[in-house]
């Protein structure tokens, strides 16, 4: 069959031609390999630079602290003297001779209680303050003053009030973490667009429904900013509080190690504290992403 095709005014017959079929290799294997390669590339791009910096820092540290009259321990000395603390976080040799993992868990438990209470109280108080102009005027200046009080300054008062070190440490965590949560929640509530309030009015949502379905989700990005600052402050405060209150926590471990001149142990504890703090911050950040469904970008 021929089809007449008009090309520039000239009629030409078009004869169908036999197509040659080229067999291409299945793309499946290639795609998998390419994807694995790109993952590997990404992982390398994210892990190699910090590893390189870490290596350089360790070498410099080793060089600086390897002289006989160095006041601080070098990495090799830390490894030699505190190897067990690093490799086995969960040993138990006695009531005060525990692995750092156990001590961290005790500290984390205190933080969990104090921070949990601070989150609930902070969000509720922040909501009230954000909602009411008069509550803002009355309470905001007081909060702005109180939030600048350093965590440890609260400890003597807490000890006097509770007459026990455990609730005092928890209270210090609470009072440290609660301010940013209150203030950020209040800002978030105040910034809820009028449009959402109008929608709620037309739908005649009652106060509880309004709180649950409009206020919390609308203010969630702000609330999580407060929660993230709060968890950082709580972790900062717990070490200091435990140094003074004693017990089994990681803070007291550092104080104890200092008193018995075990400097390598202190360095190991510092690294553990840093890692846990980083981990806590990530947990809250991930929770924020999940709860706000990606409207909070980290």
């Amino acid at each position: 069959m021929t089809l007449p095709v008009k090309i520039e005014g000239i009629e030409q017959p078009l004869t169908p031609q036999k197509a040659t079929i080229l067999r291409l290799p299945s793309p499946r294997a290639g795609i998998v390999r390419a994807r694995l390669l790109s993952y590997a590339h990404m992982a390398a791009a994210n892990t190699l630079p910090p590893l390189a910096v870490l290596t350089i820092a360790l070498v410099v540290w080793e060089v600086l602290c390897s002289t006989p009259d160095a006041t601080l321990p070098s990495p090799t000395r830390i490894w030699a003297e505190s190897k067990e603390l690093i490799t086995d976080p969960f040993f138990v040799y006695g009531p005060q001779d525990l692995g750092l993992g156990w001590r961290l868990l005790v500290s984390l438990q205190r933080v969990a209680i104090g921070y949990g209470l601070a989150s609930v109280a902070g969000i509720l108080i922040g909501t009230v303050i954000g909602q009411s102009v008069w509550a803002t005027r009355g309470l905001d200046p007081i909060f702005q003053v109180l939030r600048t009080v350093p965590p440890l300054a609260w400890l003597p008062i807490a000890l006097a009030a509770f007459r026990d070190s455990q609730p005092s440490a928890v209270f210090v965590i609470f009072i440290t973490a609660v301010w940013p949560i209150i203030i950020n929640t209040a800002v978030g509530i105040r910034n809820i667009p009028d449009d959402y309030r109008n929608v709620a009015k037309v739908l005649q949502l009652n106060p509880l429904e309004f709180f649950r379905k409009i206020m919390l989700p609308a203010a969630a990005p702000y609330i999580f900013t407060g929660l993230r600052i709060g968890i950082g402050l709580a972790w900062l405060a717990i070490v200091a509080a435990e140094m003074l209150t004693g017990g089994v926590g990681i803070g007291f471990f550092i104080w104890d190690a200092w008193n018995s001149s075990r400097l390598p142990d202190i360095v190991v504890a510092l690294i553990y504290i840093g890692l846990v703090g980083f981990f806590l911050d990530r947990v809250v950040a991930i929770a924020a992403t999940i709860v706000t469904r990606g409207t909070v970008r980290n």
């Binding site: 449009d195 959402y196 109008n198 929608v199 037309v202 379905k213 409009i214 989700p217 609308a218 969630a220 706000t292 469904r293 409207t295």
Partner: peptide, 13 residues
């Protein structure tokens, strides 16, 4: 008296 708002006012979450 349902309102269709000028800027849609859908809840983004």
């Amino acid at each position: 008296r349902a309102v269709v708002f000028q800027n849609h006012s859908l809840l983004p979450w």
